[in-house]
């Protein structure tokens, strides 16, 4: 079972809807027992970094998520959920989960570029990744983004995808079984469906 971690940060129904569409059951939950038993974890989220970490703390999920991830349970962070994998963010003062070395920074862009970076954009794959395996079937994959902050990896090899918006930034990260995507696969048509399918079918758990 795939657990979609519910910690009060944004729209979780659409992830469940897409998983259902591709034929996989999932559970939207904050229950530590269910999360402990889950074969895979999805950490979604929209909103502020500190609020997210505070909510995870209040639900006593921080240690559990870390243990599961370090123990080899595949974890996919989406949008803010990706940023929480870092060591911390300019947006707040609280430490992140620290599963992928790096920090989250605010976009500083030239005049004419609006923040948030909102809309459809492409990803340059930087390494072999199970998430993007078989993406060769698409002429050009594109994903829906909405964010004002971006992940800056300390280790180059952890950045699995790069995207351009006035500057090049890291749009997906990966270390062991821990994955993060800045965009919203659940709102990215067949491209997002393929990615979620890859996460469930190809990433060993």
């Amino acid at each position: 079972m795939t657990a979609i971690i519910d910690y009060g940060m944004g729209n979780l129904g659409s992830i469940k809807n897409m998983l259902k569409k591709i034929g996989y059951a999932s559970e939207i939950t904050a229950d530590p027992d269910l999360i402990r038993k889950a074969e895979r974890l999805i950490l979604p989220g929209v909103g502020a970094f500190d609020k997210a970490m505070t909510n995870l703390e209040d639900l006593q999920l921080i240690q559990l998520i870390k243990e599961k991830a370090i123990g080899g349970t595949p974890l996919l962070g989406i949008c803010l959920g990706m940023q929480l994998l870092s060591e911390g963010s300019e947006e707040g003062v609280l430490p992140g989960l620290g599963l992928i070395p790096g920090r989250v920074k605010k976009f500083v862009l030239p005049a004419g570029y609006k923040v948030p970076h909102m809309g459809w954009n492409t990803v340059d794959y930087q390494r072999e990744s199970l998430l993007y395996a078989n993406f060769g079937i698409f002429e050009e994959a594109r994903f829906y983004f909405v964010h004002s902050y971006h992940f800056v990896c300390s280790e180059e090899q952890d950045a699995s995808g790069l995207t351009e918006y006035a500057q090049i930034f890291t749009s997906s990260v990966e270390k062991g079984g821990v994955y993060g995507v800045q965009f919203h696969p659940e709102k990215s048509h067949k491209f997002g469906m393929q990615m979620l399918r890859n996460f469930i079918e190809l990433v060993p758990c």
Binding site: S14, Y144, V146, K187, S188, H189, G192, M193
Partner: peptide
């Protein structure tokens, strides 16, 4: 509507 919408 939302359950059928795989875009924003």
């Amino acid at each position: 509507i939302a359950s059928e919408c795989f875009m924003p």
